[in-house]
Computed example of a mutant assay.
Amino acid sequence: MDVRVQGRAPPAPFLGAQDRFETEYDVSLPVHVHVRSDPDERTWTGHYDDKHVLNISQQAATSAMARELALHEYAHMTRYEEEHPSHLQSTDEALFLGLAGNSVERRKVAHCYQIANHMKDIYADDITCSLGDSDKLVSFFEASLAAAVSDHGTPPRAGLTPVTADADPEITAVNAAFALALCERHDLVTDDHRLYDLAHAAGEDAPGVSVDSFKRHFLDLGDDPTESEYRKALVDVTREYALGGQQAAD
């Protein structure tokens, strides 16, 4: 891996993540880390013909989660380079297939994009969770979900695809399902972990959303789906959230 850090942040977390990542995985194209001054900049990666660009706020790049965020984004790069269906499938296409002919609120369409990001994150974090210590990830989920349940009006400033929520308790419940699914998928928590209580509270705030159902959607994602299988999974979860579970057709 060739990692180049550009911006006002120490390179150590990104180079340390590189060392850990390279013990089992690799990224062929150069990685350009762009540290942004905007504290509200979400951490995200752009993929280009000659490089990957990891965009991250200075606040996130200097936080205790910086190394874990870098590992997470390196995993996205690997999934993209190996042409995993989750990272090649057009979200716009899947939402068109799932929602065509229906009138859907703009907020719910925006939430469907977040759910699609969660599905990508499942596959990226299948890699990051295989690399070892996930305690910080679990703590991140717990703290951010607790903040969401107590105050839906306070979104996160930076980090992984948020499991805190915006003002809408319905997407908070789906985000809770994502956190539980990832933790159960990799045996990161015990049955009595506080995450379950927080997810239950999130579900109570959104009676129209089944936390258990969305958790199953995320848990049922196979390791190596075909393009058709992944598209159908994305269409199904889109329909359940936006249309109340109408049957998807591929």
Rank of each mutant, 00 (worst) to 15 (best):
M1N: 08
D2K: 04
R4P: 00
Q6Y: 00
A9C: 01
P10L: 04
P10G: 05
P11A: 15
A12Y: 10
P13T: 05
F14S: 06
F14L: 08
L15V: 01
D19G: 02
R20T: 13
E22G: 13
T23G: 08
T23C: 07
V27T: 13
S28C: 09
S28G: 07
L29T: 09
V31G: 04
V33F: 01
V35E: 06
V35N: 05
V35M: 06
S37C: 10
D38N: 15
D38M: 12
D40N: 05
E41C: 13
T45Y: 15
Y48G: 15
D50F: 14
K51V: 15
V53Y: 03
I56G: 08
Q59D: 13
T62H: 01
S63A: 02
S63Q: 02
A64L: 08
A64P: 04
M65D: 13
R67W: 06
E68R: 07
E68S: 06
L71Q: 01
T78P: 00
T78W: 05
R79W: 05
R79S: 09
E83Y: 02
P85K: 01
D92F: 00
A94I: 07
F96H: 11
L99S: 12
V104H: 08
K108N: 14
A110W: 11
A110D: 15
H111R: 03
H111L: 02
C112D: 06
C112T: 09
I115K: 06
A116T: 07
A116N: 10
N117H: 10
D121T: 06
D121V: 03
Y123M: 01
D125E: 09
D125P: 00
D125A: 03
D126P: 01
D126M: 03
I127S: 01
S130G: 00
L137W: 09
S139E: 15
F141S: 05
A143D: 04
A147T: 04
A147W: 00
A147V: 02
V149W: 08
D151I: 05
A158V: 03
A158D: 08
G159Y: 11
T164H: 13
A165F: 09
A165L: 07
D166V: 10
A167V: 07
T172E: 02
V174M: 08
N175R: 15
N175G: 11
A177K: 13
A177L: 13
F178R: 14
A179D: 10
L180G: 11
L180K: 11
L182R: 08
C183K: 01
E184K: 09
R185H: 14
R185G: 08
H186W: 04
H186G: 08
V189R: 10
T190Q: 12
T190V: 11
Y196F: 06
D197V: 00
L198T: 02
D205W: 07
A206V: 10
G208T: 15
V211D: 12
R216S: 13
F218H: 12
F218Q: 12
F218W: 12
D220H: 12
L221V: 12
D223Y: 07
T226G: 15
E229N: 14
Y230R: 11
V235G: 02
D236C: 03
V237Y: 05
V237I: 15
R239Y: 09
A242E: 07
G245M: 14
A248Q: 04
D250N: 10
